[in-house]
Design a protein around this nucleic acid. Structure first.
Lengths: 195, 195, 195, 195
DNA sequence: GATGAATGAGGCTTCATTCAT
DNA sequence: AATGAATGAAGCCTCATTCAT
């Protein structure tokens, strides 16, 4: 397999995102992706072991970048409140700016098979970790409840954010996702903060 | 098409749930479902127009019952707090008791194709409606925040509950889902309540 | 198998003609024919051995009646010219009056499988025989050519008549078939007569 | 879809003709045709959209060539008598030389479904046109009857020729079709000519 | 490295026929 | 005699993957 460095590696991944967003997971045949990437069908197999490998790589690449950006932005601010705000803002911002990616991650990729889902689950753990670190900081600083299960808190944060994005995608992105940063932040802070 | 009344209608749906839970959405062939239901392949087409129709019917039937039970239980109590508690409790309870159904609704059915997902979305609206009614009651009674978008509140409630169940399923149901009723309820009340 | 005498025997055959004319040979399922005949699916198998048997019986019954009528009418006149005229007239007349039957015999039944076609061929022989008898009379009376192969003459008569009807059916019976009796008779007489 | 130029396009069509002639229309499964053409099942779908498309293409290709040859041969002679003779001769000659094709066009393809039959009808129009042009020439030259409907004349010519071939095929080609060119020509000339 | 024609396994669905009532 | 729910065999087509060029 060729190293990832090549232009084509990213061209294929981007083509996959576009094709899946446009035609749906079940209509994203290898041939279609190859045509969109302007390579031959066989070329895809020089860069990826299988179609599954392409999809996993796609999710991993995009997710890693996604998390990296959130993480980087969070490190620029100090208080846990600001960090949570940045997390929600960056999450919404990135998907609002790349609507194809939003469709793919919120809807289409969830239709993939078990093995892919498992690996996606593994990739998501990094993001979950990030959220749990944030929660721990909040608890340490005495700002968040101490008795609550961190996992449950994380599930609330991720669940709320994820459901908000999914609803927005399902409504065909007809409203401004970023306008929901504020209310979502408010609700989550309310839920978590130690009064 | 034969009427739904027959034993076989439900036998087929139950067989489908079991086969999908066991083998996954993409390995739930009609032949497998038929064998599990102890009918011939063709018999399925006496009760359902297509495999898609079977899956949609499955979800609609189970979801309708699900919502009916939650709705019924909620009506037995008065305060909005009790209602929210019952909602979470019933949601977790029903899926904890029918783990095959949990796998199917949380994981496998989300892999279905666009058309099925659309109809599933329509069915879910009933549940969303139920939650929003509950929120409105809370607002009317002056217990919940008034300035917040009801949709965002609903997304938080549903997103948190759904993510909690999905995480539990992904962890292969190794812990007691019902033990999370209390903390989830606490967090959600915290988030919503007007202080 | 029940005897043919019953009402249902003919009800089923007539239903078959109607269903095939309406929906085409490949969409004439047993269930549809049964419903049209107002009997149960299984009842058909009390009167016919198989669907093929029904179709063969249908053709044989209709064909026999058809030929009988032509034969009877021909016997009422003396000269071979009058007989040929009656043959063409009766052929066109009967199909013009029963357009469903016309569709079935000219178009749909020709789509049936090999075995049915073979038996249909056998049934057609009676009609061929009738035509050849007529030709022989013409030759004997010194009115038709004597050197020509009777089979070729018969093929011309039948071929011309049959193609004329088929063309009419293909044109959705938009013109009056009976207006073609005269010209077809004229052409055929021209061809055959000894000058 | 790959272009028709490839060897395989014709290999598949020829295989289809052979399989249909040998096993009959209803027993000409895609798998059988593929095996005969020595390609994989899927390969057929690189060259044809569907099985129907293959059958239509088959008929169109063979029919077009057929008509082209007849047309070409007719143009080599001047008088309408010679042209009619060539038409009959070429028609019989081509089918006598390719008996598989004869079986397919006279018997099996007529068993195809409505859509295929419609397109076959359209293709046949070219041939009908050719015959009618010939008739018009005969009339213009004062050799054929002028009062007769050209359509009826064409139906006689085509009907007689077609029935002659069909009878020959049904008799399992046990006699020499070409020996019928002369008598058929004689009969048709007799019918049409202005005396 | 790149191509793209060829492969072939596998599944949904139809419908003539049966048989318990 | 009549019913009609149940049967199950059989076929068209898709598409991820390969490999000769």
């Amino acid at each position: 397999m060729v190293k990832k460095a090549g232009d084509k590696y990213h061209a294929i991944i981007d083509a996959a995102v576009k094709v899946i967003a446009e035609h749906g997971y079940h209509n994203a045949q290898v041939t279609k992706i190859a045509r969109e990437a302007q390579v031959a069908d066989g070329t895809i197999y020089l860069y990826f072991e299988s179609k599954d490998d392409l999809l996993i790589s796609l999710f991993r690449l995009k997710m890693t970048r996604f998390v990296e950006k959130v993480k980087h932005q969070i490190e620029l601010v100090d208080t846990v409140e600001q960090k949570l705000y940045q997390l929600i803002y960056m999450h919404f911002k990135q998907l609002a700016m790349d609507q194809d990616l939003a469709i793919v991650t919120q809807i289409e990729l969830r239709q993939s098979n078990r093995d892919i889902r498992k690996l996606i689950g593994a990739t998501l753990k990094i993001y979950h970790q990030l959220i749990e670190d944030l929660i721990r900081q909040g608890i340490d600083e005495g700002k968040f409840h101490q008795q609550l299960d961190i996992r449950v808190m994380r599930q609330m944060i991720f669940g709320t954010i994820d459901e908000t994005v999914t609803s927005w995608v399902m409504k065909e992105m007809k409203y401004d996702l970023l306008s929901l940063v504020q209310p979502v932040f408010f609700l989550l802070m309310n839920a978590l903060k130690c009064k």
